[in-house]
């Protein structure tokens, strides 16, 4: 299962857990499973069925385009971080 790293300010939604093991072979499946397990986290991550624009997701060392079809490996580490805008 992939390991999702939870930012400190959202750990109130995961009973204080800093990492959560989640099944899923795509980013969309992982986020869906994460939201199902932790509904409070779902509320801050998802809006109108999609990841909120202010949330960025990195799989291992690579920031994704929040594409729900992005493949996820069983050994992947997934990081939820604030989206960054360049100048």
């Amino acid at each position: 299962m992939a390991t999702v790293h939870i930012p400190a300010h959202w750990r109130t939604h995961t009973d204080g857990r800093s990492t959560v093991e989640v099944a899923g072979r795509s980013l969309g499946a992982v986020i869906e499973a994460l939201g199902a397990a932790y509904p409070g986290l779902r509320a801050v991550l998802i809006d109108d069925g999609a990841l909120r624009g202010e949330v960025a997701v990195a799989i291992d060392s690579v920031i994704t385009e929040n594409d729900p079809l992005e493949p996820v490996d069983e050994r992947s580490e997934i990081f939820l971080v604030p989206a960054i805008a360049g100048g």
Partner: peptide
Amino acid sequence: ARGVPASPNRPTNTAMHMRVEK
């Protein structure tokens, strides 16, 4: 205020709080 553990019980101009911890 998003990110603040509980919704504030008084007016605040903090719109968002985030924490990175390690």
